[in-house]
Simulated scan of single mutants.
Amino acid sequence: MTAPLRTIRICADDYGIAPGVNRAILDLLDAGHIDATSVMMLPKSLDADAVVALAAVKQRRPTISVGLHLTLTAPFRAMTTGQPFKPIKDTLVAALMRRHDRAVLDAEVRAQLAAFTERFGQPPDHVDGHQHVHLFPQVRDAVLAAIAEAAPSATVRQCGRAGSWAARIADRKGLVLDLLSIAFRRRAVRHGIATNTAFAGTYDFDADADFGALFPRFLDSLPDGGLVMCHPGFVDAELQRLDPLTGLREREYAYFMAEAFPRTLADKNIVLA
């Protein structure tokens, strides 16, 4: 019996972080092997050429989703104040303790959203967060309020997975995102903001991770309207300076460009949005 047709998105995060990442994402978008990317506004590698190149792909393939990858953690600096952000763990603890200054958060979120709109000539198609920071308490309220006002037609990424809770427990990182996404989805509904139905793509970024074996499993319980996060890229000095996720990006890129990838989608009766 043929599985029901499912339409999903595959979104490459971190466009703008480094030239090698930009090049890999553009390749995959142009080839039609992914259909979304999320853009970081703070790194210097989001230069004029990077914006023009992505806008050109969007013009050739208007159904792709180009969104804002809100960035609020180290090693980057705030657009509004120039001050360095704290590491992810410190940012999460401060959010859980409700220690962030909401006015400062509001200003930074709105500044990055406005910068995206100015540079690409339109609001983002979707919004998510680098290191999933948009799900954090306090941050989520600033994000949803800004989207409702400045980009009401944008979707926002929720990171709750499909499937039984028993099956989710083995992935501790994914479980944290599941729990944070419960409150996030409720708030998104109150703001009238659409979200993806379910999420996949988390794994332990160990050096020996087999992305080719992992990816088909991401699709097993993903429903229609689901989203898979990925991080393809080529390693260069700028990426090594800014992010610990390096070699695995090349492994992800190679998988998406290989013949096994479209066969996997076809076998599972999945098409891209």
Rank of each mutant, 00 (worst) to 15 (best):
T2D: 14
T2L: 14
I8G: 14
D14F: 03
G20D: 07
N22A: 07
L26Q: 10
L29S: 12
L29M: 02
S45W: 10
V52R: 15
L54F: 01
L54V: 08
V57C: 08
R60D: 02
R60C: 00
R61W: 09
H69F: 03
T73G: 12
P75N: 01
F76M: 14
A78Y: 06
T81L: 01
G82L: 12
Q83P: 02
P84W: 00
K89L: 05
D90R: 06
V93W: 15
R98K: 10
R99E: 09
A103V: 08
V109K: 02
R110N: 14
L113E: 09
A114N: 05
T117W: 07
R119V: 12
F120G: 00
P124Q: 11
H126E: 10
H126V: 10
V127P: 00
G129Y: 07
H134E: 01
L135C: 07
V139I: 09
A148E: 15
A148S: 15
A148T: 13
E149A: 08
S153D: 05
R161W: 04
G163C: 04
W165D: 13
R168T: 09
I169L: 06
D178C: 03
D178Q: 06
D178M: 11
I182Y: 05
A183P: 00
R185T: 04
R185I: 04
R186T: 15
R186G: 13
V189F: 01
A194F: 00
T197A: 03
F199M: 12
A200Y: 14
D204P: 01
L214D: 14
S221T: 02
L222H: 11
L227M: 08
M229S: 01
A237R: 11
L242I: 07
D243V: 05
T246P: 00
G247E: 11
M257N: 07
E259S: 14
E259M: 06
F261H: 10
